[in-house]
Structures are given as structure tokens and as C-alpha cells.
């Protein structure tokens, strides 16, 4: 064969077909999806993240949390996501309306975080866990995020934010570990992760 243009036409059409089929048509089908009103509460769903949580979202992105934590709950009967308590229902497209980028994830070295705000609502727990995961989850392979904390001399008064560390994690006497704004933002983001409202297309428990 020696006819380049025809070859090129085939090359063009094959990719064009999948580009249209896998990106353009989905964009037309559900790229314009809108928020909905939850009947029980009368609030719009989903809500955009804002303030500290939206800053925390940027930290989640920058530090690549996605490489170990997914944010998608598979439906009942496919995997054990719901049985593990990772969600109260399967995730659907509407849950991600404001997410840029979407943190769907493809790896679960750590647990799914779709609903972590409901599953673990304690700020202290999250701060200790970020400072050193071994405090709360012995044997975890999650790295410590000490760069989100500051070790400093205790001043006239101990900081109210300081982590309460005991045993092998205790700080040297006279010092305290204080979370930076970044640590607080990240925790605010984690606490904002809740997908617990029943939707028309995704009733609870399915």
C-alpha cells in the first residue's frame, strides 16, 4: 500500500470516533447536570466547598492524597464498599458537580474517603492522624504529614490547638506541636466530605 492520505483518514476517524463517543457525548449527556433539592432538609445538593475546606481541597490535590484514597462508593453487591461503611449509598455523577478535578481515584492503599466527614467527625482525631498515622492507626503505611505542623517552645501559655501527644509520640518537655493553617484547612476539607443524602437516582443502602 502506498496511499498515505487514505491511511491518514482511517487514523483520523478512529480516534475521532472515540473522542466523540467517550468525551463529547458524555459531556452532552451529563456535563450539564444540575444541583437538586433534598426533600427532608430543603437544601440544595451538592454544595460547593468554600472557605477553609476549599483551601484544604487544594492541599489534598497538591499532596496527591488521590494515589491512595479513592472517593467513590461502589454499589451494593459490587465490592464491599457499603458493608465497610465507606458510604450509605453508591456514588453518582451528581455528587461531583463542583469537583475540579474529580478525586475519583483508582487505588485503595488507604480507605475510601467519600464519606469521611460523617464516618470520623473528630477534628482531633484527624490532626493526630495527619501528624503521625501510627497514633490512631497502628500499622498504617500512610506517611506522616509533619510539615503541616509546627514544633515550638511553649510560650507563656500553652497553645489551645496543641496536639495532646502521649507515650512514644510525646514531644520533648517544654515543646508543643501546633497544627498550621494548612493542617486545619485539610481537616476542614476532610470533614466536608459527606455523601449521605439520599438522591432520587441513588437511594440509601444501594
Amino acid at each position: 500500500m502506498k496511499y498515505g492520505p487514505l491511511l491518514f483518514l482511517g487514523i483520523f476517524l478512529t480516534l475521532a470516533s472515540s473522542w466523540v463517543g467517550l468525551t463529547v457525548i458524555p459531556q452532552m449527556q451529563f456535563g450539564g447536570l444540575q444541583t437538586t433539592k433534598i426533600e427532608e432538609t430543603g437544601r440544595d445538593y451538592p454544595l460547593n466547598t468554600w472557605g477553609a475546606a476549599s483551601k484544604g481541597r487544594e492541599l489534598y490535590r497538591a499532596n496527591g492524597c488521590i494515589y491512595c484514597h479513592s472517593q467513590q462508593v461502589r454499589p451494593q453487591g459490587f465490592g464491599a464498599d457499603i458493608e465497610r461503611g465507606w458510604g450509605t449509598r453508591r456514588s453518582v455523577s451528581r455528587d461531583y458537580l463542583y469537583d475540579k478535578p474529580v478525586f475519583l481515584g483508582t487505588m485503595r492503599t488507604g480507605p475510601d474517603l467519600t464519606n469521611i466527614g460523617q464516618r470520623q467527625p473528630s477534628v482531633d482525631w484527624h490532626l493526630s492522624h495527619l501528624y503521625d498515622p501510627q497514633i490512631t492507626s497502628k500499622g498504617s503505611t500512610m506517611p506522616p504529614y509533619r510539615f503541616l505542623f509546627e514544633q515550638r517552645k511553649i510560650g507563656a501559655k500553652p497553645s489551645p490547638d496543641a496536639l495532646k501527644l502521649t507515650g512514644e509520640f510525646a514531644t520533648p518537655p517544654g515543646y508543643e506541636i501546633v497544627p498550621t493553617e494548612n493542617a486545619k484547612d485539610l481537616v476542614a476539607y476532610l470533614l466536608s466530605l459527606r455523601a449521605d443524602a439520599a438522591l432520587l437516582e441513588a437511594p440509601l443502602g444501594k
Partner: peptide
């Protein structure tokens, strides 16, 4: 969608 799908099917 049907028009697009049918159109691209015929075209391809």
C-alpha cells in the same frame, strides 16, 4: 444523541 450516534454509525 440518536441522530449523532446513527449519523456517526452510518458515516464510519
Amino acid at each position: 444523541y440518536i441522530i449523532i450516534l446513527a449519523g456517526s454509525f452510518v458515516f464510519l
